[in-house]
Amino acid sequence: MTDLPATDLPAWASPGASAFDTKLGLELIELSAARVTGRAPVEGNTQPFGLWHGGASATLAETLASLGATMHAQPDRRAVGTELSISHIRSASTGWVHGCATAIHFGRGSAVYTVTLTDDDDRLLASARVTCRILG
């Protein structure tokens, strides 16, 4: 496993590497196989009623876990999300959504993460579990 500060990101995880992550406004804060943290703005990621979109929660959770699993798979392999279960607890209408993906299993062919999403006041917005398959 390789741990890197988010200030020294590999090309595949750097800002702008993914059009979808760019659209989400994802900012990575910490990147390692064991733990990945990041955030995305509520603005631009809302449903028609002005609330943070549940799909944005799912995207943020799977992205953070997949990045951690890819760090685990380095240098010759990569990871993709294969299963996502998410519970939406509360909504947000302003500020940022902060995510923390924590590894709970590392295997040769898979990695599993729990992901918590919180608002700027550290209130729980969503809780997820993500399984990633290690490829290559």
Rank of each mutant, 00 (worst) to 15 (best):
P5Y: 10
P5I: 12
P5T: 11
P10L: 02
P10F: 01
W12G: 11
S14M: 14
A17N: 08
S18C: 09
S18K: 06
A19P: 12
F20V: 14
D21F: 10
D21Q: 13
T22D: 15
L24R: 00
L24P: 00
G25W: 07
E27D: 10
L28E: 13
I29W: 11
A33T: 12
A33Y: 07
R35T: 09
R35D: 04
T37V: 13
P41Y: 07
P41G: 10
V42E: 07
V42K: 03
G44E: 06
N45F: 06
N45L: 10
T46Y: 06
Q47A: 03
P48Q: 06
F49Q: 13
G50M: 04
L51K: 04
L51S: 06
G55M: 09
T59P: 06
L60V: 13
L60N: 02
A61G: 02
A61I: 04
E62Q: 15
L64D: 05
L64K: 01
A65D: 00
S66I: 04
G68P: 10
G68Y: 01
G68E: 00
T70L: 02
T70V: 04
Q74T: 10
A79C: 11
A79H: 01
A79S: 12
G81Y: 03
G81V: 01
T82P: 05
S85E: 04
I86Y: 07
S87I: 13
R90Y: 11
S91Y: 05
S93G: 13
T94S: 11
T94Q: 13
W96M: 02
W96I: 00
W96L: 01
V97A: 04
V97R: 00
G99A: 07
G99C: 07
C100L: 07
C100M: 07
A101N: 00
T102I: 06
A103T: 12
I104D: 14
H105C: 14
H105W: 15
F106T: 08
G107K: 07
R108V: 10
G109D: 09
A111I: 08
A111F: 04
V112E: 14
Y113V: 02
T116Q: 15
L117T: 09
L117R: 04
L117N: 10
T118F: 04
D119T: 11
D120Y: 02
D121Y: 05
D121H: 08
D121G: 08
S127L: 14
T131Q: 09
T131N: 11
L135S: 09
G136F: 03
G136Y: 04
